[in-house]
Amino acid sequence: MNCKINRNAAKVLKQMLESEGTEGKMVRVYVTLEHGDHAHYDVKLDTPTVHDEIVKTDKGIDVLLDKREPFLDGVWIKYFYVPQEGFDITNSSKIHHHH
């Protein structure tokens, strides 16, 4: 499975991972809603399960992706400060995107 992260997202995710009470947690991207040819995604801190693949990124952050969910392969985690601050998670290999 593949996952990319932009610089802004890496900075924010590292801050999340370094915050209080996150020992042993990793970044997880998950599908919040799936309909037809596309899905909506979100990100949270979580612990690995037997169904996860730990994907290493070029930003030094490992990401948990559930191997049973095809919409997760190829996700790109971006973080923008304008026009509105927040994550934008897309998967161009799966046609559509969303957060």
Rank of each mutant, 00 (worst) to 15 (best):
M1P: 13
T57N: 01
F87E: 01
H51P: 01
L13K: 08
T57D: 03
I89R: 05
I77A: 05
R28Q: 12
W76T: 10
I95E: 14
D88L: 14
N6I: 01
S93A: 12
E85K: 11
T90G: 06
Q84F: 13
H51T: 12
V31E: 01
E53G: 11
R68P: 00
K56P: 01
L17K: 07
C3W: 01
D88I: 08
K14F: 03
S19D: 12
E20L: 02
S93K: 14
A9T: 06
K94H: 14
V75P: 00
F80V: 15
G60S: 11
Y41F: 14
L72A: 05
L13M: 15
K67N: 13
N8P: 00
R7E: 05
T49G: 07
F87K: 04
W76Y: 15
T22W: 10
Y81E: 14
Y79W: 07
N2D: 06
I95A: 14
E34C: 06
Y79R: 01
N8V: 00
N8T: 08
G36P: 05
E85N: 02
H35N: 12
E20Y: 13
C3N: 07
L45A: 00
G74E: 00
V82C: 00
A10N: 02
N91E: 02
M16D: 09
K59Q: 14
K56T: 03
K67A: 15
D37L: 15
H40D: 09
A10R: 02
L64F: 06
T47N: 10
Q84C: 08
M26Y: 11
H35I: 14
N2P: 02
E18A: 13
E69P: 00
G36L: 15
E23S: 10
T32M: 13
L45N: 02
A10L: 03
L17Y: 05
E20F: 13
G24W: 07
K14I: 01
E18Q: 12
K44V: 06
V12L: 06
L72Y: 09
P48R: 10
Y41W: 11
L45V: 06
G60I: 05
V12A: 03
S93C: 00
V55R: 02
K94V: 05
G21H: 13
L17D: 02
H40K: 14
R28I: 08
I61Y: 05
R7S: 11
